[in-house]
Amino acid sequence: MTDVGIGAPATAAAIAAPRGHGTLRRLLRHRSFLIGFTIIALLAILALLAPLIAPVDPSAMRVRFRFRPPQAAFWFGTDQFGRDIFTRVLYGTRISLFVGFAVCVVSGLCSAILGVIAAQFRRLDSAIMRLMDALMSFPAILLALGIAAALGPRVSSVIIALTVAYIPAGVRIVRAAALTVREMDYVQAAQVSGASSLRIVLRHILPNCFSPLLVHLTFIFAYAMLAEAALSFLGVGIQPPIASWGNIIAEGRDYATQAWWVMLFPGIAISLAALSLNLLGDALGDMLDPRLKGGE
């Protein structure tokens, strides 16, 4: 008669609402989730509607209006070519969110596949993990810098570079989760019934590795946006005249003392997005943690 203690929390959960609703309801009640989610959703809507909202063309140069400080006509002021910073930041949001999202999706997929393969097919484990260790031995940003520089300054190379840089951490997370899950009795029960490896991976291992990966990816989203800004700032990322938060700052750098607003507003946008993604990730981490879920 071991372990009767574990019974108690689950009994309480047994009468809780069905899971789907419960998780959503809990998430909506979680304050930092709500704040993070709202800000990101707002940014996404603004980015989508940019052509409708933006007062002018993002690359329209009007030398007459160079270096105008923030005012009614130019909310965020203008830059050295008289371009409207508000419009550029708005369009930059599109790029930043797109890069962040793309890196999330691609690196998430790759991490899930590689992590599960490493955990489930032990023969490939050491090969995969050595490769990941090798990638991890470079600081992510340096690795991305190198790859982006080699591939040439394009949006796609930024995405590839960042994806490669962030895969190792994702693989480790998925692999660790998968290694725990594959020892669970329900996986063994499936084995007793003759389930194939593929079935075990798809039905049991992947769904149960999803939570930690999801939490990780919200942070990756934030890192990728910051890193895109950094790469663009360093000149290997997205090239002007396309506006990205990073290259607006890069362009404004030379005039920082006379026109502080050029750097300030994209900077605020970056911090805001990163902060709200972090809030979101923390909240998801809390909510999806089985211990907290069980102990409610």
Binding site: Y186, A190, S193, G194, P207, N208, P290
Partner: peptide, 30 residues
């Protein structure tokens, strides 16, 4: 013709699988 029932009722069901699918799993595999 063989089956196994595990000790820990909390670890022997996949938390993300509905009861119907869990029970049907051996049927689906066969």
């Amino acid at each position: 013709r063989l089956q196994f029932v595990f000790q820990d009722p909390y670890a022997s069901l996949n938390p993300r699988m509905r009861i119907g699918s869990a029970i049907a799993e051996p049927l689906d595999i066969a």
